[in-house]
């Protein structure tokens, strides 16, 4: 099996090309320097700014692996930031560790509940995931604004600032958080049987049922974890700017997170998931954003590129596309079950 067949080959090449191409515009792109005991450089920026996306994408990976999707993560991020800053803003000493920890606990606890809500709608009530999570996607930002009373809450709390904007051991604290979530997710899911059972449910729900797997709990867990991840990411973003903007925190994050997961090779229909792939996907998206910023192109042009990437990734994943392009290599192993799906040409026989 050649290296080009590895599922991380193309995403990896894409990431490398993006990174290297930066050198042409910013010769110092790969430089790292120490200043005031902190490490600075473009690479550090990419990882730090990409940390919240990575965390959301890790949660999304599990939801997608079950065959679902979570559209509400952006709104949950906004709620999380709103809950935490609202609590901190009301403290007499905004920098008190206990107060900040309480705020963080409240925010994450609330987000766990929101994840549970999504999970219940999908696994218990039986609503399609896209639609079930759409409800929170629509209402969530309203809830966040309700909490902040429609204002942008600003806090002055170095302790809170640490989460998304602080440094530890010369590196941004956000990086440690992201690594911690990634490692936690990988260890929990791969050391226990969770990962395999989720892949089984996402890969073939009926076969899993007949093997005696109780999928309901697994699906619930995936949505709860996704809610937790979105909550943590929301805290990081709000902490980085020491404020909570209910309107804009986490806007379009659901789409970026889905994109990161898909670039990483996890199929949208569920089944096998790849956390390392998600890492590469999230870094690619962040590198792209950073590159476009440093080159000086309008930052929003990233959307065009994302459109292109989504399109290409989908085509590659589409069996119909593969069948059309690689017709000789891909032959069905069994007679097709359904009649040909092509539009029928009318030709009355002689």
């Amino acid at each position: 099996m050649s290296i080009t067949r590895h599922r991380l080959f193309y995403p990896g090449v894409l990431l490398l090309v993006l990174l290297v191409s930066n050198v042409f515009f910013t010769p110092t792109f790969f430089n790292l320097r120490m200043q005031d005991g902190h490490l600075y450089g473009s690479l550090i920026d990419i990882v730090r700014n990409g940390a919240p996306l990575l965390i959301v994408a890790v949660g999304m990976t599990f939801v997608i692996a079950t065959g679902g999707i979570d559209l509400s993560v952006g709104a949950v991020m906004a709620i999380s930031g709103a809950v935490a800053t609202h609590h901190i803003a009301g403290l007499s000493n905004q920098d008190s560790t206990a107060g900040v920890l309480t705020a963080v606990g409240m925010a994450l606890g609330f987000c766990l509940l929101l994840g549970l809500w999504n999970g219940i709608l999908v696994a218990v009530v039986g609503i399609q995931p896209i639609i079930a999570t759409l409800i929170l996607m629509v209402a969530g930002r309203g809830v966040a604004q309700w909490i902040t009373d429609g204002q942008i809450i600003t806090v002055n709390s170095p302790a809170y600032k640490l989460i998304g904007g602080g440094y530890k051991l010369a590196l941004p604290f956000a990086i440690f958080l992201a690594i911690a979530v990634l490692v936690f997710a990988a260890v929990i899911s791969r050391r226990s049987a969770l990962g395999m059972l989720i892949e089984s449910v996402g890969g073939n729900a009926e076969a899993s049922r007949l093997a005696g797997i109780r999928s309901r709990g697994l699906i619930l867990l995936a949505y709860v974890f996704s809610g937790f991840c979105a909550g943590l990411a929301g805290l990081m973003i709000s902490s980085n700017v020491s404020s909570a903007d209910a309107n804009n925190t986490g806007l379009f994050y659901e789409l970026d997170a889905i994109l990161a997961v898909v670039i990483g090779g996890t199929a949208l229909i569920g089944g096998r998931y790849f956390l390392v792939g998600t890492l590469v996907g999230a870094l690619t998206i962040q590198t792209l954003t950073t590159t476009i910023l440093t080159i000086g192109i309008n930052p929003n042009a990233t959307l065009l590129f994302k459109a292109f990437v989504v399109f290409v990734m989908c085509l590659i994943q589409s069996p119909a596309f593969r069948a059309k392009v690689f017709r000789r290599r891909q032959r069905p192993a069994s007679p097709p079950a359904a009649p040909a799906s092509k539009e029928q040409h009318v030709r009355v026989p002689a």
């Binding site: 059972l197 089984s200 093997a211 697994l218």
Partner: peptide, 25 residues
């Protein structure tokens, strides 16, 4: 359609029912 999970390996498919009975933890 009702037996194997095609994407998973032989090993995973074999231990699936035993693992399901034990629970993921």
């Amino acid at each position: 359609t009702e037996g194997l999970v095609g994407e998973l390996t032989v090993r995973e498919n074999i231990i699936l029912a035993l693992q399901a009975a034990r629970g993921w933890t």
